[in-house]
Design a binder for these strands. Structure first.
Lengths: 235, 235
DNA sequence: ATTTTACACTTGTTATAACAAGCTATTATT
DNA sequence: AATAATAGCTTGTTATAACAAGTGTAAAAT
């Protein structure tokens, strides 16, 4: 079995990146320069770079170049509602900010209807972007019971769900959550500034209020290269 | 902004797959046939298929063709040690099996040494593959304290870590775990039968025994298309 | 001095071409 | 009949070529 040229080239570049020859955010040599350096055609250089993009090490921008992606990560603790971590994060010098994309009444999807077990089919949909130190890291999509959404609406626009729920003195009984992994589709790749197919961690949750009544269904799609989740299990 | 041909073609194929035109495991038309169908060059067809591969929808095999990948998923509950789920899984008709790759004494890596806080630098390394219904789904790598490894060794070879620890009546005090996401490298892509860069979920854990003494450090790298984790949070 | 234009450089898209390599079934040989 | 060679399919690799499109800079026009 012969190793293809594009593999050995991307391996060389990967080693150079890991060795620190190219710093985080730095521009790689252009395709033309790499063609000269490795004495191969453009198609081979492009394939080599595509490998690195797929591995999440670099990111290309038309008209500008190929850049080494920063690998800073934020850890979210799941032993408590995740928002409690906000304090810890600022201590570490990581600032979390939010940007509201949409907040409006919609007809709830079938999956949400089942989860919320609500007779009402109109719920509030909220989409917001999550930034760490100015760089986009996750998108959160949540569906909120209409009676809650009406009162919480103005505040939900700017803040994170759990914080607001606590500030509004809404008791959280428990949270059911699932963690899985998916890949960026055409919508999320746009918002999260990642290439199509980039791995995303899906944190899907149902928040239960008093009397175990589900009050919120949501999912947070995080860039796998910027967010991870930690938890503590007591058997 | 004009949509590239390869994007619209991969979108068409994606819709056909989701509509069930191509069943799980079925072969897509060959590149030559797709060239005729869409009246484009081979390079465009290949780019379209590359998009689908990156999205994890199809998988190509040299000499054979391009096939729709099955999307069956297994959920691991994290509110209890994950192995308790083995019963639930068999009820769902999912059979978990294991294959031992290595079990030997090694010098522990720096990270493990710190985590286990052990004076001894020789630990047992165990690598095993995890199959669901015969299909490979995850690889588990764990480092075990020498005194435990010596006695557990013969059984650990075939069984899953937690089960054995319980059968051997070793009390598990607690488990610290982190969930993040990475991508298949050259070694894991081989074992897990996924393309380079395919997203993997990393479940990294430290098992604490009596008196909160760490007895095991491990990580499970799961194929994101076959495993996900669920948990329950009590605030 | 400010704005506009043009140019050079970057990556993105698409075509044609040829050969390599893996798989399968048929044919030819033993 | 069993084995080996072959032909024909598949995807993988690599080259050359041309144009499109996004970015930034330097020159030209206002």
């Amino acid at each position: 079995m012969v190793t293809p040229l594009h593999v050995s080239i991307s391996e060389k570049l990967r080693h150079q990146i890991e060795a620190g020859d190219y710093v985080s955010g730095e521009k790689l040599p252009s395709e033309h320069e790499l063609m000269k350096t490795f004495q191969v055609s453009r198609i081979t250089v492009r394939q080599a770079i595509a490998n690195l993009v797929n591995q999440g090490l670099v990111s290309s921008q038309q008209g500008k170049g190929v850049f080494v992606v920063p690998q800073q990560k934020v850890t979210y603790s799941l032993s408590s509602p995740m928002v409690l971590l906000a304090d810890d994060l600022s201590k570490k010098g990581i600032e979390l900010t939010f940007k509201n994309l949409t907040f409006r009444k919609v007809r709830s999807p079938q999956e949400v209807q089942t989860a919320l077990a609500s007779a009402e089919k109109q719920v509030y949909l909220q989409k917001k972007l999550l930034y760490m130190n100015g760089a986009v890291g996750a998108i959160d999509i949540s569906y909120i019971l209409p009676e809650l959404g009406k009162s919480l609406g103005p505040q939900l626009k700017q803040e994170m769900t759990f914080v607001v729920l606590e500030e509004c003195a809404i008791a959280i009984e428990s949270i059911d959550a699932t963690i899985e992994c998916t890949r960026a589709d055409y919508e999320t790749s746009d918002y999260l500034e990642v290439p199509l197919g980039h791995p995303l961690i899906v944190y899907r949750y149902i928040v239960y209020g008093p009397a175990q009544k589900p009050i919120l269904w949501g999912e947070t799609l995080s860039r796998a290269d910027r967010f991870c989740y930690s938890l503590n299990i007591q058997p």
